[in-house]
Every structure is written in structure tokens, then in C-alpha cells.
Simulated scan of single mutants.
Amino acid sequence: MAEAARRPLLQIIVASTRPNRVGEPIARWFAGYARAHEGFEVEIVDLAEVDLPMFAEPEHPRLGRYTLDTTKAWSTTVARADAFVIVHPEYNHSFTAPLKNALDHLNREWANKPVAVVGYGGVAAGARATEALLPVLLGLQMVPVAGTVPIPFAGQRVSGEGDERVFTPAPETEAGAKAALDGLAGWLGTLGLRGVR
């Protein structure tokens, strides 16, 4: 009997780890939007919960010979994804140290998988951080899609308290999210990952 087709798994990575980060409600909103897109299974991966130590493996990640349980668990998490969305703020004109550390921990688990970027901040909307991030993604042989989602003054679009905080997107943000998801789905189709591999 043929194996039933499955939708590709999209992981939404929350790149900020500080308390009260705006990225958390943005990621929840994007996850809901992606589920409504109906092209993906969706999972939020919060780097604050992953809580990786600074990279300390004795061998290069490209070899895949991990010794630390934290690295092995992170490898398993990332390897099961077919595509990624990275939700990141801009710190001092670049992206966060926890995100760089999480990317550097692995190698082939990222390779040949499409990725979209949701940057947020003040007037620059995370654009400088996104620009700094893209060469890293290319170095890992990921496939950044053309549709990025810059969100200016993101904090002004979040209401509520604690875990009940809600991000309300502007129309152009929703349009950017749709373009990003369409780009991811298009690449997955090109790579032959619309159904079971």
C-alpha cells in the first residue's frame, strides 16, 4: 500500500531569546498564517527554549559527529524540517548571537532547504540584520526565497500581556508573508518535496 502524502514541515525559528521579545507574538501570527496557507505542517522552534550552549563540539559540524546531547537534539529538530522561516530582530545593525550560534551548530541539516526571513525592528524594519544574515544562510547552502517580510516599528503592532500578546500585521506585512510562503512552496515543488520523499 502506498504511503500517504504528507505536507512539508515548515519550522518557524524565533531568533530572539530575551524576555518580552516581540518575535514571539510575530512567530505565532506567522504560524497561524502559514497554517491557513495550507501548504505546510507548521512548528515553532523557540531558541530560548532550545537553549543551546555556545558551540563547543570538538569536530566541524559538516562531519555530523556530535558529542553533546544538546547538539544531537538540535540536529534531530532541524533535520526533520523541509523549510524554515527565521523571525529575527536587529541588534546593532545585525542579527542575534543566539541565531548565529544555532546556525553554526549544524551544517548538512540546513543544506538545500528553502528559507524565508521575517525581520523586525524600528524604522529600518530589521533590514540591516537581514542583509547580514543572508550570506550566512548561503554559506550553509540554504535557499533564501526572494520574499522577505520586513516589519517596521513592530512593537507598536503588539497588544496584550505575557503569553496573550497578539501581533496585528499591516496589510503589506500580510502581503509579504504570502509572497514568502508562496516562494517556499515553489522551491519545495522544485526540489520535489510536495509529498513524501
Rank of each mutant, 00 (worst) to 15 (best):
D104V: 07
D104C: 09
D104H: 07
D104P: 07
H105L: 06
L106D: 01
L106N: 00
N107C: 12
N107I: 00
N107E: 12
R108K: 12
R108S: 08
E109R: 10
E109V: 08
E109T: 09
W110K: 08
W110M: 01
W110G: 03
W110I: 05
W110P: 03
W110C: 02
A111T: 12
A111K: 05
A111P: 00
K113H: 06
K113Q: 05
K113Y: 04
P114D: 07
P114N: 07
V115N: 00
V115M: 02
V115D: 00
V115L: 04
V115T: 06
V115Q: 02
V115R: 01
V115I: 12
V115E: 03
A116Q: 02
A116H: 03
A116S: 14
A116E: 00
A116F: 01
V117F: 02
V117S: 09
G119P: 05
G119T: 15
G119W: 03
G119I: 00
G119Y: 03
G119M: 12
Y120V: 07
Y120H: 15
G121D: 00
G121R: 00
G121E: 00
G121C: 01
G122V: 06
G122T: 06
G122R: 07
G122D: 08
V123S: 13
V123F: 10
A124I: 05
A124H: 10
A125T: 05
A125D: 03
A125S: 10
A125R: 04
G126Q: 03
G126N: 01
A127S: 14
A127K: 09
R128T: 07
A129G: 15
A129V: 02
E131M: 12
E131Y: 09
E131L: 13
E131T: 14
A132E: 13
A132C: 13
L133Y: 08
L133W: 07
L134S: 07
L134I: 15
P135W: 11
P135Y: 12
V136K: 12
V136D: 13
L137H: 05
L137R: 05
L138N: 15
G139M: 09
G139F: 09
G139S: 13
L140E: 08
L140R: 11
L140T: 07
L140Q: 13
Q141E: 14
Q141N: 14
Q141M: 11
M142I: 04
M142K: 09
V143W: 04
V143T: 10
V143Y: 11
V143G: 01
V143C: 05
V145Q: 07
V145K: 04
A146H: 14
A146I: 09
A146S: 15
G147Y: 06
G147I: 09
G147P: 08
T148F: 13
T148K: 13
V149S: 11
V149W: 07
P150C: 06
P150M: 05
P150V: 04
P150L: 04
P150H: 06
P150Q: 09
P150A: 05
I151Q: 01
I151S: 01
P152K: 05
P152Q: 07
P152T: 04
P152A: 11
F153Y: 15
F153A: 14
F153M: 14
F153C: 11
A154L: 08
A154E: 08
G155F: 05
G155T: 06
G155K: 10
G155E: 09
Q156F: 13
Q156W: 13
Q156M: 15
Q156A: 15
Q156N: 15
